[in-house]
């Protein structure tokens, strides 16, 4: 049964504890919390190295009220597959009774770049894991270096003049592996996201969620704007919310009237260097227009 309102989500038990060390206003914390509310007690959390991992498992404490494992940066999918294989084998051999959800939370670097090979292997094998990429569009843990998911023109410490390529299409990559369920999500549309997590967990093979996560430090904005930016990413058409199920793409949040991309970009320090550059702004707007045409979003309304 899909969640119908916020109260139903709030009522779910929390398995993500406060007192973690993520920055004030960090969107990754919201993702971790919602994912765990939906996945529940009988779940095993796997993280790739990154902000979420180091800031939620700082010895001697942990923010996770479920079994949790981190091994390295590039192997979260393989680690998850190993857990899946173990539980499947032990249940088959009647050494264990109860099954678990195996959930991965890995950053964009750990997913789109260094971890892509392991993820491809898990997708191809059809392992029953739910892999969620929390995408803050750079390597934040090591101090804001570009990743394959850094958007066009964004400043990072290794793209000081702005990133000159487009974000990797992770959904396209997942879909090309014929995963049964893949979806985009973001924290400002929590009902949508919660329902996607629930659906992903119910799939008998691998499922994938690409979850946009504003990062106050790396995107250079006032922490209070985390949810607002996430909303603007959707409203501008830069982050269409859709799902892919059994071969069909479906928009899950309609955007009848689009906001110009400038409204989104101007709140972020990482785009400051193009604020007066009409040519570059027009390029980003036309990229949003392309996405809008592809996913059936409405026109830009000033």
């Amino acid at each position: 049964m899909p969640f119908k309102n916020l109260k139903e989500i709030i009522a779910r038990q929390d398995f993500f504890s406060p007192g973690h060390g993520l920055c004030a206003g960090c969107g990754a914390a919201q993702i971790a919390r919602i994912v765990m509310k939906i996945a529940g007690k009988d779940s095993i959390m796997v993280n790739a190295t990154g902000c979420l991992e180091v800031s939620t498992t700082t010895y001697p404490w942990t923010a996770w009220k479920v079994p949790y494992i981190h091994v390295a940066f590039e192997n979260a999918a393989a680690v998850a597959s190993g857990i899946r294989a173990a539980y499947d084998a032990l249940i088959m051999k009647k050494k264990l009774g109860k099954d678990v959800n195996v959930v991965v939370l890995a950053g964009d670097g750990g997913t789109a770049d260094i971890g892509l090979q392991a993820l491809s292997g898990a997708f191809e094998r059809g392992d029953r894991i739910t892999y969620i990429c929390y995408d803050n569009e750079a390597y934040m843990n090591t101090g804001i270096q570009r990743s394959g998911a850094t958007p066009y023109d964004a400043w990072t410490t290794t793209s000081p003049a702005g990133q000159k390529t487009l974000k990797k299409d992770l959904m396209g990559i997942a879909i090309a592996h014929r995963v049964k369920y893949a979806a985009t999500a973001t924290i400002s549309y929590l009902l949508d996201a919660a329902n996607k997590v629930e659906k992903a967990l119910s799939i008998s093979g691998p499922s994938f969620i690409h979850w946009l996560q504003p990062c106050t430090i790396g995107w250079r904005y006032d922490p209070k704007l985390t949810v607002k930016l996430s909303r603007l990413a959707v409203k501008t058409g830069l982050w269409p919310l859709y799902e892919h199920y059994d071969g069909i793409n479906k928009l899950t949040v309609q955007v009848p009237k689009r906001t110009p991309v400038l409204e989104y970009l101007k709140l972020q320090g990482r785009f400051r260097h193009i604020m007066d550059n009409q040519e570059e702004l027009a390029k980003i707007q036309s990229y949003a227009d392309e996405l809008a045409a592809k996913f059936g979003l409405g026109p830009v309304v000033e």
Partner: peptide, 12 residues
Amino acid sequence: LDPDDFLTIGGF
């Protein structure tokens, strides 16, 4: 890795 006795392995 046991949901009935959860713990964190391999943090920072």
